[in-house]
Amino acid sequence: MVRPTGAKIMTDAVHVKVAAALHQISQPLIGVGVWVGRLTSWLVLAVIAAVMTTIIMNVLGMNELLRWDSEVFLFKNAFTINSATELQWYLYGFLVLFSSTYALHTNSHVRVDLLYHRFSPRGQHLVDVIGHLFLLIPFCLMVAYLYWPQVMMSFNSGEQSNFGGLTDRYIIKGALSVALVFLALNALGRVFYSLSIVLDPTRATKEPFHVH
């Protein structure tokens, strides 16, 4: 199948332009994902601090560290040992939920690379495009959407700890849905990015596959 040279240059030109546009769209999405992921990465230090607080309060046999009169967000009116304990997994929850997006951009999710590493860069990007569109994005959106009623229920009922720990349980439940939607958006960003390379393979040599 031989095509006239002029037409081939034309289509190539369109491909290249589309690729450039897709690349353009992908950048802010990926940028935000990386930025949020890096920000939540620091939470590991907060987790350490929360656990150490629990340990120290336990060694001292303390139940309450502070008590105040007005009701505040998350802590109601006291900071007890169970506030510290539950704070551990609230913080850990935010850490892991948003880190999955960061790991997406840094290619940290496990791949069985038996065949994959033999594919051309274009082939590797194609695997990701198809996977993100048919596997990752539907999974994230479906779970996030179907879990949302439970988030609302938690919000409306004012669900809180039964051990005198933290209140506002909807925050961490809501984070699950929000983080999954965020992951889906970032996967979409990667679809645009990978498509730009599938369309214009010369980009593969210029652009890194993943962030570090």
Partner: peptide, 16 residues
């Protein structure tokens, strides 16, 4: 629960 709050009155550290 409520039992924990009773023990807290005596200075117990009630935990989960």
């Amino acid at each position: 629960g409520l039992g924990a709050r009773v023990l807290n009155k005596f200075g117990a550290s009630t935990q989960l």
